[in-house]
């Protein structure tokens, strides 16, 4: 099944109770894009991500993920939809009572009919991909933060998703680890053709991997700019964006 736009957002309003975070957001994400959601802290980037992956219900408007509206589906269809999506949480969200291999195996055990040997092979292969071969039997608390991020990525990749969501992938990583993770993300996209949605405010990542971006502005509660990070920098639609992308003009 192919969709030109794996993600379509129409007139989305997000709110916590009566406090409106963003109003009337409209955008589409192209297949195979590395789509960045950028903006200052507290502008609602992570909230937007939570809406996209069905953790929070829109106050109004619709979100279509792979052509389907999450909130109109029944439980089974929701599960089927979410199996086609992989998510790397800001703090990894690895289950601390399970080893890395068990973390990756869980979605496979739940949603596929593979044999235990095949599952073990896939876990091993995914850990190899993210550079953690041999760490199958480690618990998340026994490895470093950068390794946890990569293990989280391996788990997100477990079901070969069509869309991958990242919440601040480089948060808490040193520049070298962050760069390696960026490179890994880019290589995975180039080889697997996955659509990536990344919430970030790490400038290096923004320019290194982004092919498309939206800038969320907390004051107007809307999208202030749209385009590749380079376009946004060279012809910023608003002064805030230039300031954001040049770290206050000093770059």
């Amino acid at each position: 099944m192919s969709h030109d736009f794996p993600i379509e957002v129409n007139h989305l309003a997000m709110a916590y109770g009566s406090r409106v975070i963003m109003d009337d957001l409209c955008f589409q994400v192209e297949k195979g894009a590395v789509f960045l959601v950028i903006g200052p802290s507290g502008c609602g980037k992570s909230t937007l991500l939570r809406h996209l992956i069905g953790l929070q219900q829109p106050a109004s408007g619709t979100i279509r993920l792979l052509g389907e509206n999450y909130w109109e589906l029944d439980e089974q269809a929701r599960n089927r939809l979410m199996q086609r999506v992989g998510i790397l949480y800001q703090r990894c969200g690895l289950w601390s009572s399970m080893t890395l291999a068990e973390n990756i195996a869980l979605p496979l055990q739940l949603y596929t009919k593979l044999s235990p040997t095949e599952i073990r092979d896939i876990c091993h292969c995914k850990l190899e991909l993210v550079g953690l071969a041999g760490f199958d039997d480690f618990y998340p608390s026994e490895i470093s933060g950068g390794m946890q991020k990569r293990a989280g990525l391996a788990r997100a990749l477990a079901l070969d998703p069509e869309i991958l969501f990242f919440d601040e992938p480089s948060a808490g990583l040193d520049p070298i680890s962050a760069m390696n993770l960026d490179q890994l993300i880019r290589e995975l996209r180039d080889s697997l053709g996955t659509t990536l949605v990344i919430v970030t405010h790490d400038l290096d990542s923004i320019f290194a991997i982004g092919t498309d971006a939206i800038y969320l502005d907390p004051k107007t509660r809307s999208i202030l700019g749209r385009g590749t990070p380079k376009e946004l920098l060279e012809a910023p639609p608003a002064p805030e964006i230039r300031e954001f992308l040049t770290r206050g003009g000093g770059r």
Binding site: C125, L127, E128, L129, V130, G131, L132, A133, L184, E187, L188, D190, S191, L192, G193
Partner: peptide, 13 residues
Amino acid sequence: PGLAQILKLGAYG
């Protein structure tokens, strides 16, 4: 190329 690249990643791991 995509397949070759991902195999290279795995081999590195």
